[in-house]
Write a protein that binds this DNA or RNA. Structure first.
Lengths: 335, 335
DNA sequence: CTGTTAGCGCCTTCAG
DNA sequence: CTGAAGGCGCTAACAG
């Protein structure tokens, strides 16, 4: 690092070594505990380090060691309340293994995703990828890079990449079962991004639901509360008695609109969310929903990557279970 | 990077150069557009790059260039709904300047903060620091490192570090004024972490409020909805007619508890939050609160750092204004 | 135990 | 316009 004006004069390992009257190798050994060093030298080195305020340059270490000490995480949307918990867990795991965490956001743009992953690969030991939309082909191409990578929040059959996700299908099935038992026969689903894996998984659940006498009509919506707010009016005209949101945001948006319209929930309609985002924590909210173990997802994904980094362990795709949270917005249909 | 087993054989710039029959320097020039290169060579290089799947090693680039192309952000708690928007904005700014974003979390632990900042300095061109608790002395010590750093969400008088924050004092003053005009005379403040700057700023506002006939009693609480939930019962015994939360989480926790207790809001008590976290977005919630421009905070902080990095620009501390959001939980006091 | 010697992969002068 | 040479800061053999 050339001394740029205004920056502190960089102090390097050789500054320390001359100050301490030892070789750079010894300094390195002391700092990394790589080998036994005479106690007196250790002292001198530590003094020099302290007085010069020396900190090893991470890039140089990375280059020499062949490891960056960093993992990368790519998420579609940092502002989505789904991810902070995940990132927090990933960060903790990474740190516990002495690694830093680089974070990137694709802004839901599949085109950008590819480049960002490539960029992460240039500067991270491993990559944690959450990519709901990326095509199988592109994923396979990235996997072919043989760069350590773990896919989370999505499972791609046949893809040779360690993956961990959530049993969205099972979660939505639980929702349908809950409604069926309450006596509902027809529901509307405010659908999320149609290209997303997570949405497809939810949709699959509606087929089994039909077997239990519950018919779910799918309505294009989106993934935000605004989308839910806007979309809900359209389904009230029909004969449904329950409204399922792609996620909690959508359901809450719908709820807000329904409240404005003076519609009683759950008396007139049941409303069910999906994900159980911080609402309980934030608002002791009473939305019936299914919860995803976000911190466990982050933790497991991080550990999976660490395993991959250390042992090259591969592993079977894992689905974390969701849990139905029956609260106040679901009840028997009217009449 | 030595070829670790199971990893892809690393392809380096010299692999490309031999494949293309040119020198490494030329490859570098082509890739970085550093100088004119004969069109035919450009083609050959690009072909070689593509066919070998070459990507420059970021650590090596960083070492050679003296820049990591990375900025670091340290926040106290990733799961706090305050930060995602900030990070999102920072990430966008960083990317727009061709930099990556490293994220670390101190877990509200002032001891850890110091080490983490140091670590960030070893691997980032600049650091964005949100440290509500760190002592002035420690901050000054870090500032003395002369490593580009911007403090956000806090202003420390006399500290020679570019800082950007939010006018918490003004925000809380607005809250008090609002309540005063509604006719409230006594309120309780569910206080946040007493060591935090942001809390101190809020407290200062209560002094001016007294001049307007509003007396605010301060109650230890915390920063979470659970804390608000637990603390609120204690203040209902007194003669206050309004309850102010350290932040929205606290206020919402309090609200939830009050709802359980069957207390009417705002008829019996007004409740006011602080921060205006995603609630409107998440729940079309109706908490009266004051909003902080989180994305602007992130954006400005990012730009400030970029300025610092590029021109060494210093700047006066900036306070972003808050805006009072009068919604449904505040009204005139009973009687 | 310690110092010396080579790189790690890339960029950037400096000649040509 | 291009190649050769040196160095960024650190670590990892390799000899003593």
């Amino acid at each position: 690092m050339p001394n740029r004006p205004g920056r502190p004069p960089r102090v390097t390992i050789s500054d320390v070594s001359t100050a301490a009257g030892v070789s750079a190798a010894t300094v390195s050994r002391v700092l990394n505990g790589t080998a036994r060093v005479d106690a007196s030298l250790v002292d001198r080195v530590q003094e020099a380090v302290a007085s010069l305020g020396y900190r090893p340059n991470a890039a140089a270490q990375g280059l020499a060691r062949g490891e960056w000490g960093t993992i990368g995480v790519l998420v579609p949307d940092l502002a989505n309340p789904y991810f902070p918990d995940v990132l927090k867990a990933v960060s903790a795991v990474a740190r516990s293994h002495g690694r830093r965490m680089m974070v990137m956001e694709s802004d839901e743009d599949p085109a950008a995703e590819h480049d960002l992953v490539e960029d992460l690969m240039r500067c991270c030991d491993g990559v944690l990828l959450c990519s709901p939309r990326m095509s199988r082909a592109e994923l396979a191409e990235l996997a072919g890079r043989k760069h350590p990578m773990v896919l989370f929040n999505r499972i791609v059959p046949g893809l040779a990449v360690p993956s961990i996700s959530v049993d969205f299908h099972g979660g939505m099935t639980a929702v349908c079962g809950h409604l069926a038992q309450l006596g509902h026969r027809r529901a509307a689903y405010l659908s999320g991004p149609s290209a997303s894996w997570a949405n497809a998984e939810r949709l699959r659940a509606f087929e089994s639901a039909r077997a239990f006498g519950v018919e779910v009509e799918v309505v294009e919506c989106g993934a935000t509360s605004e989308a839910g707010y806007d979309a809900v009016a359209g389904v009230l005209a029909g004969d449904v008695t329950a409204i399922l949101g792609y996620n909690d945001l959508v359901a809450l948006g719908a709820l807000a609109r329904m409240r404005e319209l003076g519609i009683a929930v759950p008396a007139a309609y049941s409303v069910v969310g999906f994900d159980d985002i911080s609402l309980e924590r934030v608002a002791h909210s009473n939305l019936t929903t299914v919860s995803v173990p976000r911190d466990e997802l982050g933790r497991r994904a991080g550990e999976l990557l660490e395993q991959l980094l250390v042992n090259g362990d591969d592993a079977e795709p894992t689905y974390l279970p969701m849990r139905l949270q029956v609260r106040d917005t679901s009840g028997p249909p009217p009449r």
